[in-house]
């Protein structure tokens, strides 16, 4: 029995150690040295890199941007995703096609989606600006991605377009688990469609929603690719995230110690938020499932 356990978990465990635990330890090691990316690690600086990161306004702004994206992603995508999922859950013509259309952006590679949107959002020559001009409005002077006050929200809009499909897909899957008898019973009792959704379907969808929100939060904290392609963190650092900050400090400026310190901070932030979420929000679902397992 013990042998079987070891046999079955060994490959996964080896990968976990090699690609998760080892990099974490290395990052922690790098974070206490000043190191340019080559040569031996000799210049020990203690916690100085952490101080430099936490005092750096660009980093604290980046953390702020991450948190804004965490909150707004959930606030925008949750009602939108729920509404679409509930509508698509009804029998109607073209249901399959609609589901596909909503899910396609999620299947697209992030880089490809990013490049496409970058072109669409080009100031003056892009499709979006041409459309706004065609209806008599004019786009922002520096473009949607070039105006510091707008860039983060433009990125957020693209992210919503990209990830709404996942929310809808998960919610639709969750809806399959809601027994039809319940809504039938409610209808017999004279509940309207809206009342049925609000009092029965959505509460029963709770575990799915909470799990989706968790995935969304972790994804938002680690956000990198879409920002890197659309704005590279600019203009004027208006869209930097913790991940773009550490890549910029690391591979661009070769301050690997600072980058490693930033990555450790990102790790701690993500871990703490994940544990808090687990403790206070997911715990209900977990207790319920644990209870079921015991039975």
């Amino acid at each position: 029995m013990a042998l079987e356990v070891i046999g079955f978990t060994a490959p996964a465990l080896a990968l976990f150690l090699l690609f998760v635990v080892w990099p974490i330890l290395r990052a922690v090691q790098f974070s206490v040295y000043r190191w340019k990316g080559f040569g031996p690690l000799v210049d020990f600086v203690g916690l100085q890199n952490y101080l430099a990161v936490l005092r750096n306004e660009v980093f604290t702004d980046a953390l702020m941007h991450n948190l804004i994206i965490v909150v707004l992603s959930i606030v925008v995508q949750l009602p939108l995703g729920l509404a679409i999922a509930l509508l698509l859950n009804r029998r109607m013509r073209g249901q399959g096609m609609l589901r596909t259309i909503i899910f396609v952006p999620y299947v697209l590679a992030e880089v490809i989606a990013g490049v496409v949107w970058f072109q669409l959002l080009q100031p003056q020559y892009g499709v979006v600006d041409n459309l706004t001009e065609a209806v008599g409005l004019s786009g922002p002077e520096q473009g949607w991605l070039g105006t510091p006050g707008l860039a983060l929200y433009t990125v957020l809009a693209v992210l919503t377009w990209k990830y709404l499909g996942l929310a809808v897909l998960l919610f639709l899957a969750g809806l399959q688990g809601v027994p039809e008898e319940l809504s039938e019973a409610a209808q017999i009792d004279g509940a309207s469609w809206w009342q049925t959704q609000r009092r029965i379907t959505i509460p029963l969808l709770g575990p799915t929603i909470r799990m989706w929100a968790f995935l969304s939060m972790i994804g938002s904290l680690q956000l990198f690719d879409m920002v890197w392609i659309l704005t590279g963190g600019g203009p004027a650092n208006a869209t930097t995230t913790m991940a773009t900050f550490l890549v910029n400090e690391g591979t661009k400026r070769q301050n690997y110690g600072i980058a490693a310190a930033a990555s450790v901070v990102l790790f701690v932030v993500a871990l703490v938020l994940a544990l808090l979420y687990q403790r206070f929000i997911l715990s209900r679902d977990n207790d319920a499932s644990d209870a079921r397992e015991v039975r």
Binding site: F19, V20, P23, I24, R26, A27, F30, G37, I218, L221, Q222, F224, M242, A243, L246, V247, G250, T251, Y256, A259, A260, A262, S263, V264, L266, F267, A270, L271, A274
Partner: peptide, 12 residues
């Protein structure tokens, strides 16, 4: 999940 980000910096 939390540590995915770390590999970004540590891959060097």
């Amino acid at each position: 999940t939390g540590s995915l980000a770390l590999t970004l910096a540590a891959c060097g």
